[in-house]
Nucleic acid binder design. Structure first.
Lengths: 340, 340
DNA sequence: CTGAAAGCGCTTACAG
DNA sequence: CTGAAAGCGCTTACAG
């Protein structure tokens, strides 16, 4: 259907390779020849087939991005800057989701259709990184880590979560709770570590019954709030494994008539856009996700260009953003089940 | 680097085409041959190169999805079901953004790297649809329309917006305002038409100074609220071109101390997930975006399978979802600038 | 049942 | 400066 370089060659009265050279701007092509070829190409609406080019060049200029769930409001914060970065660098973005067991198989990623891969979602025990490594397929971890020696762009989650621990203690809270993310994710695990470490540094600890681990989702955050408030000694402050969980907690709070921050302090992690909406005003740990994503893109492109370079782990230091979802513990005025 | 079918052939002691046949499950291959080939393939970690396959088969099993802005919280509602639908049908998803003038060129979409394209974002005057049509590249409009005879999956926007007009009138509002979407988008245009039509049906009209058109974005919605409230006769009810605009309006309201719905009724369109959060409680027009996206996917795949079939326009009828952002006009108790 | 041949549409040494 | 040749890695008639 579509015209090929042969058609253009015939029309321009040159050989097919000359069409290729002329259109790619090869310096040795005579100006007049180039003109004729360009004219013929235009006449035929010719666009060089990337199918042919890709097979010939062994480069696809395509990057795979693996996210867990497109529905999760966290991912656009990674996907958008990643896509823009790659687009500008002349690469296209192919989307993969890795939900439950149902992730992309190594075969899908290793069929030569991708120049490199961004893993944003891998669980600590995912077999994908090792498999990619074994096949020498360039990839980078974004917001994730693993034991594998690989490129990664991450936030210092331990540090960031400790900031929250420090804050909650300083605000005078004692019944501190946590809705951690999954331990199988490095972000979930590291944020838990940092938070616990901070509490023990201050001589506090996290009561077992006030700590849960849930997937990074709105609905799980929402449900977790109910669970924790049903404890005999419910928390007055809650660290959430990320903003999406915190948003769920906030939502549950409205539903349950729990006032934020008077009855409950809630702190998230990531600082996604929604956290800063006036309605929401979530106090959280700010990560520069745009920069994080671009850094990952950069690492991947460098790895593609030079497969043998040293692996680098780029760590970004986050900081607290104080908004309206935290408050000093108010012992006297608390209208809840204080008198028991 | 990676093993090719030739390597497998050598190891299995067969010809290269036999490897291809064996691995694709061609019925004529002898069981014992197939076994040997499979074993060799496994030993070499062989995965058939999709670069070769694609050139040979003239099918890429790749679908391009064009959205305007990945950052906009609306798009995941289309992207997620689209991606899932295509994935399940054996197609991959390549992402394109079309922001401002900076959209994908027809050359990018016509280079043979895509089997079909979903346009979710096209402005009425976009040259893309005509160019795709001219080149016989299968595509479908999702949540968009144009004059082009093409497949499309849309919501009855005129009808949905009229529902809002009816509601506002029935609630007793007279100073009715609107933050429409862009007229250059069929959704923006049709929702404006439907809304105006409903008002005139009830003998009302929209004061010019109470109607603005803005891009479908949070920040524009936010800014528009300020603009409209600064009018000499500010509105008591506001129709928003979509939920994202409405969310911006809600955000501005918090900032400006405008109470929703006591001081101002706000109604959106789309019913994205956030609209139903307890915090938000946005009254809006519900569209089944999941179904809409799957319908579009379906239309596109059918078009790919049969380029000559009749074009179909699938129209979904939306309905109102009453939540907490609307209220009956309360003349006496209004504490605002009533006494002038 | 399986091999040899041709072809998908490019790019890039290699000659001349 | 440009053509003929080879090759990228598959698939699929075509023979046998």
């Amino acid at each position: 259907m579509a015209a090929t370089s042969k058609d253009v060659a015939r029309l321009a009265g040159v050989s097919q390779p000359t069409v290729s050279r002329a259109l790619r701007g090869h310096p040795s092509v005579a100006p007049e020849t180039r003109r004729r070829v360009e004219e013929a190409a235009r006449a035929l609406d010719y666009v060089a087939s990337e199918r042919g080019r890709v097979l010939s060049l062994r480069k696809t200029h395509r990057i795979g991005i693996v996210v867990s769930d497109l529905t999760n409001p966290f991912y656009p914060h990674l996907l958008a800057p990643l896509h823009d970065y790659f687009k500008q660098a002349g690469f296209r973005t192919v989307l993969f989701t890795e939900q439950d067991e149902d992730g992309p198989t190594i075969e899908e990623l290793a069929d030569g259709s991708l120049d490199g891969i961004v893993l944003t979602t891998s669980l600590v025990d995912s077999p994908l990184p090792a498999a990619l490594m074994h096949r020498d397929i360039p990839f980078v971890f974004l917001n994730r880590e693993s034991d594998a020696t690989a490129d990664s762009a991450v936030v210092d989650n331990v540090y960031g979560a400790a900031l929250v621990g420090d804050l909650l203690v300083e605000l005078g809270h004692h019944r501190i709770g946590a809705v951690f993310g999954p331990r199988a994710a490095s972000t979930g695990r590291d944020r838990e570590t940092g938070f616990r470490r901070s509490l023990s540094k201050h001589g506090r600890s996290l009561a077992d019954e006030l700590a849960v681990s849930v997937p990074f989702s709105f609905s799980h955050g929402r449900a977790a709030l109910g669970t924790l408030l049903a404890r005999s000694e419910p928390p007055t402050a809650l660290f959430c494994g990320n903003d999406v969980i915190a948003l769920g907690v906030l939502d549950g709070a409205v539903e349950l008539g729990v006032r934020i921050p008077e009855d409950l302090t809630v702190v998230g992690f990531d600082d996604i856009t929604i956290a800063s909406w006036a309605h929401i005003g979530l106090t959280t740990v700010h990560c520069d996700l745009d920069r994080l994503a671009r850094t990952a893109g950069d690492l991947l492109l460098k790895r593609i260009a030079d497969p043998d370079r040293e692996h680098v782990r780029s760590i970004q230091r986050p900081h607290l953003v104080l908004r309206r979802s935290h408050a000093r513990l108010q012992l006297p005025s608390s209208p809840s089940k204080k008198e028991h």
